[in-house]
Design a protein around this nucleic acid. Structure first.
Length: 259
DNA sequence: CGCGTTTGACCAGCGC
DNA sequence: GCGCTGGTCAAACGCG
């Protein structure tokens, strides 16, 4: 696989091909992607929205229905304890985006290990499942191609990284740090146009620092300067983005924000 | 040898 | 209750 040691922007042609990010809904919940999902199971989950979204917590709470074997216990398959009360699958906050790319697995600065692939219904293309290789990080992502447009890759992130990217870019650090602050892959913030029907207020919640991410926030806030590569927002190329809507302004065209 | 991928099996949730 | 589907596990395998 492509080693994440190489900063994708230098070699990964997919980025050049990538043309846009479209708004995407969380199909399962009917929410705009990027918005933190409401707790599906408030009593048991530690409030996925906001702080508890930490993927650092050992409680993956999810594990696809299986006992949370995330990262550590995976080896010994514990006897599947009978769940007295139906424990609903608790999802981490997710966001997804569509990318026009010829390759499925876009480099985003993190290292991922593929742990599964499934054929999905209503799609001729299989869905791949990836997990962050950081043992303390339980972030997962799914990658699949759109059945409507095979050139479009749909990537869904679940959870938030509690660590820096594996590689820190040389030149594009501003992009990367910004993306880190967003818990997004860098190409999201830098190379794509993100259309979203998120209410403006929801994005800041997405940016909410996690206890284990505060360093990222710090880095981002100190190192960030407005990237010049966000010209994808062709709607208003020369506008100056107010501080309070900076990232949002970069990614969400104004026209899309008053939906 | 370590790390990542492949792939079939297994399990849980959900709809009928 | 049953079948379908999505999600995950884990052994086998490949590669550097």
């Amino acid at each position: 696989m492509a080693m994440a040691g190489d900063w994708p922007f230098s070699a990964n042609e997919a980025y050049a091909d990538s043309s846009a990010i479209f708004a995407e809904l969380d199909w399962a919940n009917g929410l705009a992607v990027g918005e933190l999902l409401p707790p599906l199971d408030p009593p048991e989950s530690e409030t996925p929205a906001g702080s508890a979204a930490s993927s650092c917590s050992t409680d993956d709470a999810d594990g696809g229905g299986k006992p949370a074997a995330a990262s550590t216990e995976a080896a010994s398959k514990p006897a599947p304890e009978k769940k007295g009360g139906k424990k609903r699958r608790v999802r981490q906050p997710r966001f997804a985006f569509m990318t026009k790319s010829e390759i499925d697995h876009l480099e985003d600065g993190y290292r991922w290990r593929k742990y599964g692939q499934k054929a999905v219904k209503n799609s001729p293309f299989p869905r791949s499942y990836y997990r962050c290789t950081n043992s303390k990080c339980t972030v997962k992502k799914r990658v699949e191609r759109s059945s409507d447009d095979p050139s479009v890759v749909i990537t869904t992130y679940e959870g938030q990284h509690c660590h820096h990217t594996v590689t820190f870019p040389r030149a594009a650090s501003h992009i990367h740090t910004m993306a880190a602050a967003l818990q997004m892959p860098p190409f999201v913030s830098a190379h794509h146009q993100l259309y979203s029907n998120l209410p403006p207020a929801s994005l800041p919640s997405l940016l909410q620092p996690l206890h284990c991410n505060q360093e990222l926030q710090a880095v981002a806030s100190s190192g960030y300067h407005k990237p010049s590569v966000t010209a994808a927002s062709s709607s208003s190329p020369a506008r100056s983005v107010p501080v309070d809507e900076g990232l949002l302004g970069d990614m969400v065209p104004r026209a899309m924000r008053h939906g």
